[in-house]
């Protein structure tokens, strides 16, 4: 129930994000979700794509620094209080969130929130035990 996320190091200068997306597009790789964390000098682009291994390879070939991290994708209802309910569970089981970002589905009334947590195996186990719906990689790409 873990999903592979790619992180790409980007300097804060124009055109870098455009280059990443172009490289992915040229190789028929689809981006399912993304988020950018930035500081004054640099940013970290986090991506969920449909072909993570291929994406990582082509980005490296284009001189990007890429790392792969396992994250959790949680499905929740796209309505007020949906996220709060999941966060409450994480708080109760004392799982610390490094960062998170959300995307909405194509048709469903549900949303997906991607969590990066410290102890991912324990998080998966306890979240499932608490009845939270986790998505596997294929489900995320199809969502």
């Amino acid at each position: 129930m873990k999903v592979k996320q790619l992180s790409v190091f980007l300097e804060n200068k124009s055109g870098r994000l455009a280059t990443v997306t172009k490289v992915l597009g040229d190789h028929q790789i689809n981006i399912r979700a993304l988020s950018i964390a930035d500081t004054t000098d640099f940013g970290i682009l986090r991506l969920i794509v449909d072909q993570p291994d291929k994406a990582s390879q082509v980005l490296k070939e284009n001189d990007f620094t890429v790392s792969e991290t396992d994250v959790i994708a949680v499905q929740m209802s796209d309505k007020p209080g949906g996220l709060a309910a999941v966060l409450k569970v994480l708080e109760d089981i004392k799982i610390n969130i490094e960062y998170m970002y959300a995307f909405v589905g194509r048709t469903d009334a549900d949303a997906v929130v991607v969590f990066r947590v410290e102890d991912i195996d324990r998080a998966v186990e306890l979240l499932q035990k608490a009845g939270v719906k986790l998505l596997c990689a294929e489900e995320v790409y199809a969502f």
Binding site: S7, F9, T39, F42, T65, S67, R116
Partner: peptide, 15 residues
């Protein structure tokens, strides 16, 4: 230059 060895997906670690 940020190599894979130095890189992290967390801003805090890079800082």
């Amino acid at each position: 230059e940020v190599s894979e060895r130095l890189f992290s997906d967390e801003v805090r670690k890079l800082e």
